[in-house]
Nucleic acid binder design. Structure first.
Lengths: 336, 336
DNA sequence: GAAAGTGTCTGAATCGATTCAGATCGATTT
DNA sequence: AAATCGATCTGAATCGATTCAGACACTTTC
């Protein structure tokens, strides 16, 4: 049915070994053979069978990417960056969205192991370190994305979340805000706790006259943001914060919408809002949202590059790549 | 290195054939053997080698999904739906984002062919029909997503875009709008022309007193939307439309932002805006955006299901699944 | 009691690309 | 002229799971 390397060899009048060499190390083959083989490939419409290649050579040309929230445009961008890098070298990306569900996370790790991916990019939700270690023992390296590997057991590519949190709150303080609410959760997500830690540091650094309260949410979604916004506005006016920092833009946009629609408080006049990630929609909100930018595509590209290096050299030492976050000021925090 | 079926067989004291049977048709194996094999698998941490399975059995457990704009949350949702369905049966999804680039589209088709995917889900950009036909001839079926297969050569899952366009403009007319602008492009995208056709039909149906003008954009992005918004607002006030229909929400959100930020026209008082897709951000805009909803997850789920059926029966007749669009009214078109 | 049937198991052949030891051959060295 | 060498090519062995013809042990049937 399908055209195999044998058919090509026959047509080109060479052995299968030579065809394989043309495909994999053309410089060891005479120019004449290369040409004949290429022509036969062309004529027959031959396409290499990845399964056979993977089986024999043991090298896979797919990597798995497990994302904890595919709905978040930030991750979409990270994946896009990884894609860019991958397509350069003919690597395909197996994609899995776990939606912050430990079961789905495990499922995808199993699935990708069966597929014998060359490596794994993962924005983890649950505690996957043990699983990743056993995968690595089986020859599948992993690089953590958007998450610093605290124990240094794996390479990681992320942004300094603590610095980002600090940056956000320092900016709020610099523009005159004093009663700041950190709206986020759940607190078993590293991103949340790190960004809060940075926020706390900035608040404490500014001295007694800055208040930082924490409003917990159960997820980092737009809906949770609007819900939290409603809760805040339900308080007596004097208990409203004059600024809100949300550890991702989805939450921030939800908050922003709740406040704008309610109408009693103006943004940024009464309440300033700043998010995190700087997703494309942040700038397009009706009150354009200030945010802490992560170089999302670059994160994806870098993660994939490091992953390929580790796949090539299994004994390489894990390294932590940390990009600096960048403050992007838009209308939602302009000083009034 | 890796644990193979042979190791399992040895440990369980059975033949490799039996292990394979336990894995693939356990009912033909005695309960005793099943248990022994399962235990051996457990103890050795055996994971089936997909490459070998694919090679011999010729059935792949991956499908490719090629999307034309991965940044659009609509497609993110469609992918999510496909994932849901796929993970039920242990299918993994190879993901490729073409970003409305014909070259990238071709590249992914090649890549996925090499990977010998079981089938292909594609939201096409260029004219891929010939390529898809040759893939099908090689045993790889394809299902078009978000695009009706006009020539009926392939199965497709989409929403009736013409009806959606009509719905949008009928709604605008019903709420008293008379000078309607269709802002979208490029016009070689089927989604755009269909939605415009529907809009035209609605306008003509309403008689002479309704005006429909077309403002062309070069892409369906937020940025193009804000740019188009600026162009419209640059006109003398009397030439402003009193309603805008954009064939996707990204454009609509861009337009909305441009108009709100400009401030001279109110939404919806002076200009109503309606988009298409009903992405999650539509409801979260500061002026919540009316839209034509597509059942995005359902589209993904259905497409994957049909694809698997076609993979199982190569001679099945292509079928067109068309979901009805649904009007979602929010503040951006509330009658003033 | 022979034949037929049933349930279970075995093990070699197979899928297609890669790899590598060895063959071939003309050129160069001794 | 023999030996050596480098460039090029060949073809069988291999990767691991699946498949299937045949083996085997028991029952059932006539």
């Amino acid at each position: 049915m399908a055209v195999s390397i044998r058919d090509v060899a026959q047509r080109a009048g060479v052995s299968v070994g030579t065809v394989s060499n043309v495909l994999n190390r053309p410089d060891e083959v005479s120019a004449d053979s290369v040409e004949r083989v290429m022509q036969a490939i062309e004529e027959l419409g031959y396409v290499r069978n990845e399964a056979a290649r993977k089986l024999r050579a043991g090298v896979s040309s797919t990597v798995g990417f497990v994302v904890l929230n595919g709905q978040n445009p930030f991750y979409t961008d990270v994946v896009r960056g990884a894609e860019d890098e991958a397509s350069k070298t003919g690597i395909a990306i197996l994609y899995g969205n776990t939606d912050e569900d430990v079961k789905r996370e495990r499922l995808y790790l199993d699935l990708f192991q069966e597929q014998q991916v060359r490596g794994l990019l993962i924005a983890p939700y649950g505690d996957v370190t043990p699983r990743l270690q056993s995968l690595r023992a089986g020859g599948i390296p992993a690089v953590l994305v958007d998450r610093f590997s605290g124990d240094q057991k794996f390479s990681s590519v992320s942004v300094d979340s603590v610095a980002g949190g600090r940056l956000a709150v320092e900016h709020l303080i610099a523009t005159g805000r004093r009663r700041i609410a950190f709206v986020g959760g759940p607190f078993d997500m590293r991103q949340v706790t790190d960004r809060l830690a940075g926020a706390r540091a900035a608040a404490e650094n500014a001295g007694d006259h800055v208040d930082l309260e924490v409003v917990a949410t159960s997820a980092m979604t737009v809906d949770e943001g609007t819900a939290a916004g409603a809760r805040i506005l339900a308080r007596p006016r004097r208990d409203w914060p004059d600024a809100i920092f949300a550890p991702n833009d989805l939450l921030a946009l939800g908050l922003l919408q709740a406040i704008v629609v309610d109408g009693r408080a103006g943004v940024p006049d009464d309440i300033a809002i700043i998010g995190f990630d700087d997703i494309p929609f942040a700038g397009a909100a009706a009150v354009p949202l200030s945010s802490i930018r992560q170089p999302s595509r670059m994160i994806g590209r870098t993660a994939l590059r490091i992953l390929m290096e580790e796949a090539a050299d299994p004994d390489s030492i894990p390294r932590q790549t940390v990009f600096p976050p960048e403050l992007v000021v838009r209308a939602s925090t302009r000083s009034s």
